[in-house]
Design a protein around this nucleic acid. Sequence first.
DNA 1: TTGTAAGCGTTATCAT
DNA 2: ATGATAACGCTTACAA
Lengths: 346, 346
Amino acid sequence: MATKEPKNQPDGEKRYARASSYDVAHAAGVAQSTVSRCFKEDSNISESTRARVLKIAAELGYTPNSLARSLITQRSNMVGVICSEFTLCNNPELVNAISSALKQANISMLLMIVENESAIETTLPEALAYPLDGLISCVFMDEEQIQLFVKRRVPIVFFNRNIRSKGTDCILTDQAEGSAQMASRLHAAGHRRILCVGGPIDAPEDSVSRARLKGFIEAIDKLGGVDITCIHAGYTYENGRDQFLSYFADSALPEAIFCVNDQLALGVMDACRYTCNLSIPDAVSVAGFDNVSDAGRPVYNLTTIHQQIVPMATRAVDLILRRIAQPELPEETVTIRGILIARTSA
Amino acid sequence: MATKEPKNQPDGEKRYARASSYDVAHAAGVAQSTVSRCFKEDSNISESTRARVLKIAAELGYTPNSLARSLITQRSNMVGVICSEFTLCNNPELVNAISSALKQANISMLLMIVENESAIETTLPEALAYPLDGLISCVFMDEEQIQLFVKRRVPIVFFNRNIRSKGTDCILTDQAEGSAQMASRLHAAGHRRILCVGGPIDAPEDSVSRARLKGFIEAIDKLGGVDITCIHAGYTYENGRDQFLSYFADSALPEAIFCVNDQLALGVMDACRYTCNLSIPDAVSVAGFDNVSDAGRPVYNLTTIHQQIVPMATRAVDLILRRIAQPELPEETVTIRGILIARTSA
DNA sequence: TTGTAAGCGTTATCAT
DNA sequence: ATGATAACGCTTACAA
């Protein structure tokens, strides 16, 4: 009890495989706190002992245990990222961008995938169990869910979800402005009968799809003289394809089709070309939003609005770090412009 | 000191936002250990106190801190997943499958993305810092790197990386057999001049691309009478496209092209159709391997070998759990068959 | 059924 | 420059 024997290693045999700072201290003949100091920059420690201790640590394969550190420092160095299966599978670059921004800041990513936009409940306990340094949510959360994190002082940044709540920030592509750019382009190209393929009919007022649709329609109305029709699908390729087909079954072909995301647009394009034998853009123009990687392939060449995912991810991480440092700062909503990528589909 | 006052809450003001079991205990007038018991199934606790404590916990927004729990239980309930940017971006379903298999087992996923197959060094410190319950690696690791984890008793499962090492398991698509299926099909279709688009020329002997290439060539040789040429690209769409173009610039068109992955195949297809004006499969057949989601779109309709990602992911998690429970079990290499998906490209 | 106390592996605050 | 020692928030004997 009064000795320096590591407590977790009563006999010669080790109970646990991972070496602890006690093991290193024991082997190096120093105090455990000395070992700890050796792994910290600018700590008062002589270069000679540091060198010796680090050498022994390497031999024993010792690295400070992040979990134990977190407990005392009150910082886990982990940020949770919640996103939907759809986002992961159709826009993996987004997750990649967030991952690399976090890596830049030396923060680990606890990734939680939810089945769909409204299934966040299933992962809430997981997100709450850890003392996360922050949460980046690419899905909607209601006020009650948000409060669970706010109460625990876990900063939330909403990624492309326009949610304003006390103590949370958000980063958004300027949906309305992006859609307006597309509206101008289609209008300038002379299109006067336009079909809009929106998200689900029951999408909430503040959803991405609604924002894009609304922005598009308002811009078109301002330009004037355009006949607009809207149909509503989900978000997927198949939704776009099927909804267009059932629309086109008993309606005239529009001159242009604006889809609120690229997946819908790709579905519509394929429906046009492979089912209806319509050539694009000769028979009809198609435009999307997001600029997913497929959109740039020659098979689609989709005219779309590019979301600047990389700067958005960087900014999202900045917002988290900022709020960790200064929790009481006023809420911020950062808006980043979309960039019109003119290809041949429209 | 002798009182039951929560130590972390000296005055009325709270230093930390997250409620601890002490806070709950204090509010409920019970011991801290009682609170702990309330959150554990089948523990000797009266239903009445449990109900009361849980109610108060909910009010305070208390959930047991996973980190602190891990420290004492020696189980972090976190599994690290390492994969390359390429895999994430070109086969996001893989990450999704792993994520959902882990979720099923109530394990959190620490996702680490590395720039490329050989950049794992950059994320090693992160993976080692946490006492992970296991590691699923979708990238290569050398023996020295593996040992770092083995030493810490962290089970590793290699996902589609054929690495045999003491104490580690792996789960693989049967590359050779899948390639052989494709070889049979192309042969049966009457193709006698076949171009293979392999991975990088310097890919290691035990790499996925080599295994597929080797399996294909051996099977073709067995069938006989086929003239085979190999070219080497990287792994990407652009690699496939560019390498095919530079090959075709001064060589005759083969009857069929087998690419060691779908991305290469998609690149080759687009090069054929959009640059060389060759129709597929009339002028040339193209086949791939993986069955990524794009392959099924009518724009490609790629004949390919489907990797059974979902069962593979489930099995990978099983292997981890198995080895956590019984670390000394013999190493296992699970092989799962690929399924030929015959579409119109070949 | 409940409370007391030890310990998980760290960092941080004191002494020395 | 280094060593004791007290947290961090839990789980788990052991006592009562």
